[in-house]
């Protein structure tokens, strides 16, 4: 349960921006390309120099280490980076130990609760991951695939899985369905909404697609003159 609050965030192209996204709320942002949507998400995740403060619930960004902060705000960039040979190696960074293990990905996996007893081998978590991959249209053996074999759309879906697997409190999504066919687009939307319900996560979603914004629902803001305004006023 965590709201995402931006206080006076200033990037190269935008700001100062104040924004409140409630726990479980979805906020869409759109705007011409180059208007600074992606940079805004990067600023919230603290990947580019920026001024201002961001809070998740009561936790201030400035009070957390950058690594801790980035685990809490899951940023899904438009183009995902892959550093190892196999898909599975990119999932092993997830916190395997104690604290976060039991709050990890459990969507559409009712058996995960029963399977997750604290203090056991982290590999136990596999059911949660398997379910997540299944919801995104992958067999579990996708973890053995080589990254070079993946299509753009597969990369995008696996990057989402990799990010949700860590269990962030808020999601920052940069056109998560841009390269997907309608079936996979629906899958991704369902997975995101499912995760959001499960975790009561705040979602900041950059989307060009008006149909998607209607389908998923939620407030919609547009970037104008270094700031964000409501879509109806645009």
């Amino acid at each position: 349960m965590a709201a995402l609050r931006l206080l006076g965030i200033r990037t190269l192209l935008l700001g100062p921006i104040d924004l409140d996204i409630g726990a479980g709320e979805t906020l869409f942002v759109s705007g011409a390309s180059g208007s600074g949507k992606s940079l805004l998400l990067r600023a919230v995740a603290d990947l580019d120099p920026n001024q201002g403060e961001v809070l998740i619930g009561e936790r201030r960004r400035s009070a957390l280490s950058p690594a801790q902060w980035r685990r809490r705000v899951g940023l899904l960039p438009a183009e995902s980076g892959w550093w190892a040979e196999q898909v599975g190696e990119h999932f092993e960074q997830a916190p395997s130990a104690s604290t976060q293990a039991d709050s990890r990905m459990r969507i559409n996996a009712p058996d995960a609760d029963a399977a997750q007893r604290p203090g056991e081998d982290p590999r136990r978590d596999k059911p949660g991951l398997t379910a997540l991959l299944g919801d995104l249209g992958f067999e579990p053996n996708v973890l053995d695939w080589s990254v070079g074999r993946l299509s753009t759309g597969e990369r995008q879906r696996l990057a989402l899985a990799r990010m949700l697997h860590i269990g962030p409190d808020a999601l920052l999504l940069d056109e998560p369905t841009a390269n997907l066919d309608p079936d996979n687009r629906d899958r991704v939307e369902e997975v995101i909404e499912g995760y959001q319900r499960e975790r009561d996560a705040a979602v900041l979603w950059v989307s060009h697609d008006p149909d998607q914004r209607r389908r998923v629902g939620g407030r919609s803001l547009v970037i104008r003159d270094r700031g964000l305004i409501r879509e109806e006023q645009a």
Partner: peptide
């Protein structure tokens, strides 16, 4: 050249040393 790779690791909660290790 590897900006996307390094930042992907940062986004997933790695610290700078892990992100540029290889």
């Amino acid at each position: 050249d590897a900006r996307a790779r390094i930042e992907a690791r940062l986004m997933l909660g790695a610290n700078w040393g892990e992100a540029i290790e290889d």
